Amino acid sequence: MKRVLVLAGSSEARELIAAISSRFDVVASLAGATRAPLELGCETRVGGFGGVSGLVDYLRDARIDILVDATHPFAAQMTDHGAQAASLAGIAHVVLQREGWVPTAGDNWVFVDRFEEVAQIIPKGCTVFLGTGRQTLGDFANMVNRRLLCRVIDPPQGPFPYDSGRFVVGRPPFSIAEEVAFFQSESVEWLVVKNAGGTRSRSKLDAARQLGLPVVMQRRPALPDVPVVDRVSACVAWLEGQT
Results as ranks from 00 to 15, higher is better:
M143L: 09
A36Y: 07
I122N: 00
H93D: 04
S22C: 02
A76E: 14
L211Y: 00
L148A: 04
R220G: 14
V52N: 09
D107R: 02
R134Y: 06
L130T: 02
G41R: 03
R14T: 05
T71L: 10
F182Q: 01
G9Y: 01
G158E: 15
R231P: 01
S21G: 02
A89I: 02
C150S: 10
D206I: 08
L213C: 10
D154G: 07
W101H: 00
G131I: 01
Q184T: 10
L223A: 15
R23I: 01
N195D: 08
L211N: 06
G138N: 06
L67M: 08
Q157L: 09
N142F: 09
G198I: 04
A105I: 00
V52W: 11
R219A: 13
P173W: 05
V169E: 09
L55I: 09
R3Q: 09
V95D: 01
A75D: 07
D61K: 13
D230S: 14
L7N: 05
A75M: 09
R98A: 02
T34P: 00
F49Q: 05
G47D: 12
F49L: 01
V68L: 13
G165N: 11
T132I: 14
L59T: 02
P227T: 13
I91K: 05
W238K: 11
H93M: 03
